[in-house]
Amino acid sequence: MAWIYKWLPIFFGCHCRPERSFYYRGRQFPVCARCTGELTGILALLLTWIVWHPDAVPSLLLLLPLVLDGMIQLCTAYESKNIRRLWTGILFGYGLTNLLFLSAAWVYHLGYAAGLNMRNI
């Protein structure tokens, strides 16, 4: 369990600020609310990819709530609550991971098609 608290914040680049983190039984989560959402979104995509996944454009749209929330907080005095950070993180994690998987699939298919064309030369 100690390695999760050490490596998860490094992997996500998380600031781990106490006021922006969830707590369970008095213990702070290893990452903040937004990074917890991103991790949840990543895991949700891994569980649903084979059954269903959106195309690239809807996936790009899933990134917008986090970007907008972060920019609004950066440019104004507004401070979002942890539940909003969690949901924007879930959408972002799901969308970004889906884009990663889609791009890997596209590259595979392009490489496969190129390989077939090379055989026909």
Score class of each variant (00 low, 15 high):
residue 88 T to Y: 00
residue 62 L to K: 05
residue 58 P to M: 05
residue 82 N to R: 11
residue 76 T to V: 03
residue 64 L to Q: 06
residue 117 N to H: 11
residue 77 A to E: 09
residue 110 L to K: 12
residue 62 L to N: 01
residue 108 Y to T: 00
residue 109 H to Q: 15
residue 95 G to R: 00
residue 112 Y to K: 15
residue 70 G to Q: 04
residue 107 V to E: 04
residue 92 F to W: 10
residue 90 I to S: 02
residue 67 V to K: 03
residue 76 T to L: 11
residue 56 A to M: 15
residue 80 S to K: 11
residue 100 L to H: 10
residue 51 V to E: 05
residue 68 L to V: 15
residue 58 P to G: 06
residue 87 W to P: 01
residue 87 W to H: 12
residue 53 H to V: 03
residue 93 G to L: 04
residue 66 L to T: 11
residue 88 T to A: 06
residue 86 L to N: 01
residue 104 A to N: 12
residue 99 L to F: 04
residue 56 A to L: 15
residue 73 Q to A: 08
residue 93 G to D: 03
residue 117 N to I: 09
residue 68 L to Y: 11
residue 90 I to K: 02
residue 108 Y to P: 02
residue 103 S to M: 12
residue 95 G to A: 01
residue 85 R to Q: 04
residue 104 A to G: 11
residue 88 T to M: 01
residue 57 V to W: 10
residue 86 L to W: 09
residue 81 K to T: 07
residue 114 A to R: 13
residue 84 R to Q: 12
residue 59 S to A: 08
residue 101 F to C: 06
residue 106 W to A: 10
residue 97 T to F: 13
residue 109 H to A: 15
residue 70 G to H: 03
residue 86 L to D: 02
residue 80 S to G: 09
residue 111 G to S: 01
residue 102 L to R: 13
residue 89 G to S: 10
residue 89 G to N: 05
residue 84 R to A: 09
residue 100 L to C: 12
residue 88 T to R: 00
residue 104 A to E: 15
residue 116 L to H: 13
residue 93 G to I: 03
residue 63 L to C: 08
residue 89 G to E: 02
residue 86 L to P: 10
residue 54 P to I: 03
residue 53 H to N: 02
residue 105 A to V: 08
residue 81 K to N: 14
residue 61 L to A: 02
residue 96 L to R: 00
residue 61 L to D: 06
residue 101 F to M: 14
residue 88 T to Q: 00
residue 115 G to V: 05
residue 74 L to W: 13
residue 95 G to W: 07
residue 91 L to E: 01
residue 76 T to M: 10
